[in-house]
């Protein structure tokens, strides 16, 4: 039972990766988009050559949210193109396993984006990204999972909807406000001259809780919302 579930999820991940590796379309565009977002915000928030307080953490998370939305939209646009999402849903497989597969694929993609984004922010804003590396990774993982768990469900639901491009961020951003607050405040605590580990740990805990609740809810709702 459990093995079949993860096998289906793995097949979906493998399928998405194979398509992506051949073209690198989503990965390359998303990474470049994330870099432009960082630069755009830097022009707004760096005054007289000095960044405002905590600006590195804010820019990092805004860039993750924006590029995450883009990656989610593109991933499901691909499925819409030849109506392959319908084919996936028709497959004799657990619906939640399809969701987990999609979620894992997008998480992998965003992890690669963050691999570029975090050093870039560290470089441009002299942020100490390696001092408490483990905490930073925990925040990034918790935040990205929370954001993507909600985003994957919403993007999948919106595949057949009209005006899905604008509806995805409209639905996703207010819903992921706790993730943004936790990510930004936690990261800002780590980037301070004397890092505040207690604060960072509080936000990591909140993110973990958010992830558990929303992944469970998404697994639960994926089947009924995707049924015609």
């Amino acid at each position: 039972m459990m093995r079949a579930f993860f096998r289906v999820a793995w097949i979906v991940v493998k399928k998405d990766l194979t398509i992506e590796v051949r073209s690198l379309e989503i990965l390359s565009t998303t990474i470049f988009f994330a870099v432009t977002v960082v630069l755009m915000f830097s022009f707004g928030l760096v005054v007289d050559g000095r960044p405002l307080n905590d600006v590195a953490a804010a820019i990092l998370w805004v860039a993750i949210a924006f590029s995450g939305t883009l990656a989610l939209g593109r991933t499901f646009e691909r499925e819409r193109h030849n109506d392959t999402l319908r084919a996936l849903l028709l497959a004799p497989a657990d619906r939640p396993a399809l969701y987990v597969g999609k979620l894992a694929g997008i998480l992998l993609l965003l992890a690669l984006v963050e691999l570029v984004l975090v050093p870039l922010v560290g470089l441009l804003f002299a942020a100490p990204i390696f001092v408490h590396g483990f905490h930073l990774v925990a925040l990034l993982a918790g935040g990205t999972i929370g954001f993507t768990a909600v985003g994957t469900l919403f993007a999948a639901m919106l595949v057949r909807a009209r005006s899905r491009d604008v509806l995805l961020p409209i639905m996703l951003y207010p819903m992921t406000v706790p993730v943004m607050i936790a990510g930004v405040r936690g990261t800002a605590a780590l980037f301070q001259p004397t890092p505040d580990l207690a604060v960072a740990q509080f936000w990591i805990g909140l993110l973990g809780f958010f992830d558990v609740v929303f992944v469970t809810l998404a697994l639960w709702t994926f089947d009924p919302v995707m049924t015609d």
Partner: peptide, 17 residues
């Protein structure tokens, strides 16, 4: 503006909300 099927999408969203 969601078009057909937006009742289920909306239900998912309200539940998450």
């Amino acid at each position: 503006y969601g078009g057909p099927g937006s009742d289920k999408l909306g239900a998912g969203m309200a539940l998450f909300g």
